[in-house]
């Protein structure tokens, strides 16, 4: 029996679903191995019976919270799909810009005007695992195709996928990539960021922004000091940490400069 798979979107840009559709060479194999029952980006037919739920987006409204709990009741396996779902992603940048008590009223007014204040309620933007237990995580903004395929393969074969519990620097080395800190003094998050994207940004000469999330084992103090040594201000470093990792900073109690 092919596993029934459903894709759900929460607060996100839905770019990760597109990343799946971009697996052009493998898409037919994937569709041959699983039964997609819910997928807004790709098809209209839906069903409420599924084994595996891919969750894209962060949980950031009371309504999101109810919906994800219902999904948890049905799904055997929940996969956090992309940065928003895995770490809160960019959405969590707003967590420090207001309070949960007033549902980020000031911010909502700024973004949506009076209608927003009336109609939307917001909570902190959180990763899925902050609300319900999850089985698997594919971080990244958007998710890396290779990692996505590895996870699908692991689920089908019935083993646990690779964890990537090591920093991105590993992949720079495997790719013979010139380190952007060593060569250009760029503000790279790689030494404290979970590997698994094949160091796609440093490979083209850009610093990693940390979209795959902070590594719990990261040496944050030494990393921040190293970035300062390379001429970055404390404020620049703080903002770089908060860009993709506002929620992980809170979760891991990362001291910020």
């Amino acid at each position: 029996m092919k596993p029934k798979v459903a894709f759900f979107s929460f607060t996100s840009c839905e770019g990760c679903q597109l990343a799946l559709l971009e697996c052009e060479n493998e898409l037919l194999d994937i569709l041959g191995a699983i039964d997609v029952v819910k997928f807004r980006e790709a098809m209209s037919e839906t069903s409420d019976e599924y084994d595996i739920a891919f969750i894209e987006g962060s949980i950031s409204t009371p309504h999101d919270e109810e919906k994800i709990k219902k999904i948890r009741d049905t799904a055997k396996v929940i996969v956090e799909f992309g940065a928003c779902a895995a770490t809160g992603g960019l959405n969590a940048m707003r967590n420090s810009m207001g309070t949960e008590e007033d549902h980020y009223e000031e911010l909502r007014e700024k973004v949506y005007g009076p209608v927003g204040v009336e109609h939307f309620r917001s909570t902190k933007a959180r990763p899925v695992h902050a609300v319900v237990p999850v089985e698997l995580t594919i971080p990244g903004c958007p998710v890396d195709r290779g990692h996505l395929l590895e996870v699908i393969e692991a689920v089908l074969v019935g083993r646990s996928p690779r964890q990537f519990d090591h920093p991105l620097c590993v992949e720079c080395k495997l790719n013979d990539t010139v380190c952007v800190v060593e060569a250009y003094g760029q503000m790279c998050m790689g030494p404290v960021t979970r590997a698994g994207c094949d160091s796609i940004c440093p490979n083209v000469g850009d610093a990693c922004e940390g979209c795959r999330g902070l590594l719990p084992s990261g040496n944050f103090a030494a990393h921040q000091q190293m970035l300062e040594e390379h001429g970055n201000s404390k404020e620049e470093i703080r903002l770089r940490y908060l860009m993709f990792n506002a929620y992980p900073c809170e979760e891991l109690e990362v001291p910020l400069p």
């Binding site: 493998e26 194999d29 994937i30 041959g32 191995a33 395929l149 590895e150 699908i152 393969e153 089908l156 074969v157 690779r162 090591h166 920093p167 620097c169 590993v170 720079c172 080395k173 495997l174 380190c179 790689g190 030494p191 404290v192 084992s217 990261g218 040496n219 030494a222 990393h223 000091q225």
Partner: peptide, 30 residues
């Protein structure tokens, strides 16, 4: 050790290091 990132760079660029991991990959149709 207090400042080490545990990033592995030193070992990975070394001409005498040879540690490896072995991974099996299976096609989606098994």
């Amino acid at each position: 050790g207090a400042v080490c990132f545990s990033c592995g760079s030193c070992s990975l660029v070394c001409p005498t290091c040879y540690c490896f991991d072995v991974q099996d990959r299976v096609s989606l149709d098994g």
